[in-house]
C-alpha cells in the first residue's frame, strides 16, 4: 500500500477518487449546511467541468517535473508496450478486448434514442425588446425608470402599500408569502417560479426589465428564453402600467434588495 501511495500514478488515482467523493458527498453536505437543501452536483457539471479540471490539475503538476512524469508514465508504458512479465501481458490482452468494448458500450449509450428531453440552454435573463406596450402606453425599456421612486431611490410609501396589495392579489399564489418562489402552486411548475430573494434574480436587473417580464410573461419571452416552458401569465391585460411599477417597488422593498442602476 505504501508503495502505491508513494508512486505518482498511485497518488494520481487516489487523489482523483478523493476529489470525486468530495464532489459527490461534500457538496451536498455543504449545500445542506448552508441552505438546508442537500442538492447534489448535477452530472453535467461534475463530468464536464469539475472532474476534468481535477485531472488537468494533477497532470499539470506531475508533468511539470520530468522525473515525476517518467515515474507516472512507466507503469502505463509497461502495461501497453513494454516487454513485461506474463501476468501483465495477460492483463494487456484483457484490456485490448475490454477497452474497445467499454468504449463501444459508452458510445452506444450516448447515441441511442432516448425519450428524455435534452439539457436546456435556457437563458434566464434573455434579451428584452426596445419597448413594450401596456394599454395605450408604450414604455421605452432602454430608458424607463420607476415613476414611484424618489430622486434618492426611495420608494413612495403609498405606492409601496399598493404594490404589496397587487402582489397579494395576483402573485403570491406562485411566488409565495416570503417571495422565495414557494407559493401554493410552486411545486406544480418546472421551472419553479422565480425566487426573488436569490441574489441572481431581481438584484441583477433594472426595474424596466422586470416591467417587461411581468407585462408580457412567458409568452413574451424570446426563443432563447423558452417561453413555452414558463407558466408566468401575461399581465398587461390585467394590470395597468402603474400597478406593475408599484408591484416592482414592493418586490425590491420586501426582499431588501436594490434594482440594478441604469448606468451599471
Amino acid at each position: 500500500m505504501r508503495r502505491v501511495l508513494n508512486h505518482k500514478l498511485g497518488q494520481f488515482v487516489i487523489l482523483l477518487l478523493l476529489a470525486f467523493l468530495l464532489f459527490q458527498f461534500g457538496i451536498p453536505w455543504l449545500s445542506s449546511a448552508i441552505t438546508g437543501t442537500a442538492a447534489p452536483i448535477p452530472a453535467h457539471l461534475l463530468w464536464t467541468i469539475y472532474m476534468p479540471l481535477v485531472v488537468l490539475a494533477l497532470l499539470l503538476f506531475i508533468s511539470a517535473n520530468e522525473q515525476w512524469w517518467s515515474e507516472f508514465k512507466q507503469p502505463l508504458l509497461n502495461l501497453i508496450v513494454e516487454q513485461t512479465p506474463s501476468g501483465l501481458v495477460r492483463l494487456r490482452r484483457v484490456l485490448l478486448v475490454a477497452v474497445p468494448l467499454i468504449a463501444g458500450g459508452v458510445a452506444y449509450l450516448l447515441i441511442r434514442p432516448d425519450i428524455s428531453a435534452p439539457p436546456e440552454l435556457r437563458s434566464i435573463h434573455p434579451a428584452p425588446p426596445s419597448s413594450v406596450s401596456v394599454g395605450a402606453e408604450t414604455i421605452d425599456l432602454r430608458t424607463a425608470v420607476n415613476p414611484y421612486r424618489g430622486a434618492d431611490g426611495a420608494p413612495e410609501t403609498g405606492a409601496l402599500a399598493e404594490g404589496r396589495a397587487v402582489y397579494g392579489q395576483n402573485c403570491v399564489i406562485c411566488h409565495g408569502d416570503s417571495l422565495e418562489g414557494d407559493g401554493l402552486f410552486a411545486t406544480s411548475f418546472r421551472p419553479r417560479p422565480a425566487d426573488f430573494t436569490d441574489f441572481g434574480t431581481i438584484a441583477q436587473l433594472q426595474e424596466s426589465y422586470l416591467f417587461w417580464r411581468i407585462a408580457t410573461g412567458g409568452p413574451g419571452l424570446p426563443a432563447d428564453g423558452k417561453g413555452w416552458n414558463s407558466a408566468m401569465p401575461v399581465w398587461d391585460e390585467t394590470l395597468s402600467a402603474d400597478e406593475i411599477w408599484k408591484v416592482i417597488l414592493y418586490l425590491y422593498d420586501a426582499t431588501d434588495q436594490l434594482p440594478r442602476a441604469v448606468g451599471e
Partner: peptide
Amino acid sequence: IIGGQFHPTL
C-alpha cells in the same frame, strides 16, 4: 433533483 435551474449553493 436540485429543484430548479439554479444549484442552491453553487
